[in-house]
Design a protein around this nucleic acid. Structure first.
Lengths: 234, 234
DNA sequence: TGTATATTATTTGTCGACAAGAATTTCAGC
DNA sequence: GCTGAAATTCTTGTCGACAAATAATATACA
């Protein structure tokens, strides 16, 4: 008999398991590592993370609450589909939140907020330069999220962050379609937005945010319209 | 020894326990039966519902996800406080969603939507007549929720319903302060809103929704300002 | 061979138990 | 009587096991 595994590894703090599983699954879903429809196996996850099914299930309950996974009672649970049919309603909500949060930022931001926002913009520009798609998505979301924070309305930032997360999946498809490249234009638009926020120019903030949002929406819709045509051609 | 309890009662379908606990706790929290700060005891709930702690905990995880309860790691969990400090941000969000959903309803509603909306309005009027505070809150929320549904944007309806739920607790306090009575004026404003929606009058829908929302917000803020003064007087 | 039924296997929902961490109590020393 | 450490109680987080529900497979029959 070989030496017994006295399992010195389970150096994991009590209570940290749920969060760990939640965070990882969430990222894998939003980055399309787990594409929509992928089956989620509790026991498999339990083995993978070396823990029992109980904490796994609690993490899954959270994800289901956010609509990222679908759970059929007594049957399988899988990654939720992207709702392409109601995509335009998503974009309507996104554009509105872009406008509202940017306006509020122009109104209520403080000097230290601008520092944070500019820092995110630097990272975003670097990601575009490096053509790192996942980094672009993450830093872009962080940039706008920071603007929302500067607007100081937790309800808006909450919804906005949820929309950005939801959009991460569509955005991932979008970036992929352009070989993970992104035009410099978005970087410049971000700079303009920072400028009007710094100037406390509420009206112009609204206008630029709207243009920026509609710009992105337009690009993505063009992509999916193209894909629709390709699908039909099959 | 008396006859053994062969427990013929647990006639509860597999998988229904979580939802049952979730729904009940949620209602008790939102209706202030469980006031903010109330401790939530897992074993007590387990005994009360005659089930193990596992499904109870899953329900609690969901409630925590919605921010209705706060969970301190390894320590107690309790009903979340109402955030009076950031109340104005809540009202900003509420007013915006009132406007957006009502506008969209005026744009996109179909005849059958109006039927549903009118039905809720009848119930609301009845609740006001009967001076049934909880019914007023519920039917008022159902009324506006139906309008949001008619606007056909699931993201907006989602946020809006969350706000209405959150507001249920403040509204409950508000109604209590008026001996659970409510002026007839709100009923009339609802009728006006129905009319402009039916007319597809988007601009007017926006205006009325805004007035209606600000009306309510103003009333509630007046109440809390009064309470603040009372608190200070102590 | 195709279809309906019975059997087996897999997966989920629930349970009781245990251990880690925090709160409370006990008790020694000053 | 007060302070601080040690012991105890209590609650939470996690586990392994079992049972219900479903899916997969085998078997019987036309």
């Amino acid at each position: 008999m070989t030496d017994i595994d006295t399992s010195p590894i389970p150096e994991r703090k009590r209570g940290s398991g749920v969060k760990m599983v939640y965070d990882l699954l969430r990222d894998e879903i939003l980055d399309l590592v787990l594409p929509p429809g992928s089956p989620i196996d509790e026991v498999q996850l339990a083995e993978r993370f070396k823990m029992s099914r109980t904490p796994i299930r609690e993490a899954l309950v959270q994800l289901a609450g956010e609509g990222l996974i679908d759970t059929l009672p007594n049957r399988s649970t899988m990654v939720a589909n992207i709702d392409f049919l109601n995509m335009h309603t998503f974009f309507d909500a996104l554009v509105l939140m872009y406008r509202v949060t940017t306006k509020l930022a122009a109104q209520y931001h403080r000097p230290e907020d601008l520092k944070v926002i500019r820092a995110h913009q630097v990272e975003f520009a670097a990601a575009v330069q490096a053509q790192d798609a996942l980094a672009m998505i993450a830093t872009n979301a962080a940039f706008h999220s920071a603007i929302a924070e500067a607007g100081r309305n937790p309800y808006f930032t909450g919804l906005f962050n949820r929309l950005l997360d939801e959009g991460r999946r569509m955005l991932r498809l979008y970036y992929q379609s352009y070989d993970d490249r992104l035009p410099q234009r978005f970087v410049e638009e971000h700079d303009d937005i920072i400028a009007v926020i710094a100037n406390h120019d509420v009206e112009e903030a609204d206008r630029l945010a709207r243009l920026h949002a509609e710009q992105i929406v337009h690009q993505i819709q063009k992509l999916f319209a193209r894909e629709d045509r390709l699908d039909m051609a099959l």
